[in-house]
Simulated scan of single mutants.
Amino acid sequence: MGRYRPPRRRGSAYITPEGEAALRTELHQLWKVERPQVTHAVHEAAKNGDRSENGDYIYGKRRLREIDSRVRFLNKRLDELEVVARPPDDTSRIRFGAWVTLEDTGGEEKRWRIVGPDEFDLRAGRLSMDSPMARAMLGKGVDDEVVVHSPAGEQVFYIVDISYD
């Protein structure tokens, strides 16, 4: 019997130009560089005889399935994404693509960029617009209070700066 997985909620369909370029680079790398190498390795491994005990063949076929799955996902996702290349008309409010500097109650500042779900990276300071923190910030202005409900409890931040670099 198969393992049921409920459908995942689709993320927002917005992406920055940098994010789109990164996805297109990944797609090119997988399709034009990595897949031909793995296909060649599987072909060579298949020549060695018994495929049921051939680790190179089994691993190569598994890797081909992973690559093909990711390529299908990237092609579909890139077709439905909308690239947001220019800042909004009202730059005094937090919208998609904004760089936001927040200050917590302890006085520590942190800078985040609001990006699409396909390009978020917390270590690089890129926060998905679908995250609870970003949803709490959207539409706010400088000196507004942002209250984020998290598993650790309620957190309060103050918006120090908004920019669209």
Rank of each mutant, 00 (worst) to 15 (best):
P88T: 03
L27A: 00
P36I: 12
S52H: 11
V71K: 07
V71H: 08
R70S: 12
R70P: 10
R86M: 09
D121S: 08
L30N: 05
L74T: 02
I67V: 10
A45D: 11
V83D: 02
F96E: 04
F96R: 02
G116M: 01
L81C: 02
E80S: 15
S92T: 06
G97T: 02
R95E: 10
R62I: 05
L81G: 06
L74K: 07
N48S: 13
A98F: 04
G55E: 01
Y57E: 04
P36M: 12
E109N: 01
E44K: 08
P88S: 03
K32N: 14
Q37L: 13
T39F: 12
G97F: 01
G116D: 00
N75D: 14
P36A: 10
V33L: 12
G49I: 05
V42I: 08
L64D: 14
N75K: 15
G97H: 04
R51T: 00
G55F: 00
W31Q: 15
I58S: 04
Y57F: 15
E20S: 09
D56V: 10
G49Y: 07
I114Y: 02
A45H: 09
Q29L: 11
L102H: 03
Y57C: 02
T39A: 15
E66G: 11
S69R: 13
V71I: 15
N54D: 09
L27T: 05
V38K: 10
T91W: 03
V42E: 00
T105H: 07
V42T: 05
F120R: 06
F73Y: 14
P117M: 04
K47D: 12
R95P: 01
R62L: 12
R113W: 03
G106M: 07
P88V: 02
E53N: 14
A98K: 07
V84F: 05
V71R: 06
N54F: 07
R70H: 11
P17H: 01
Q37K: 14
K32D: 13
E80F: 11
P17C: 07
R86Y: 10
P87M: 05
W31K: 15
L64P: 12
R123Q: 14
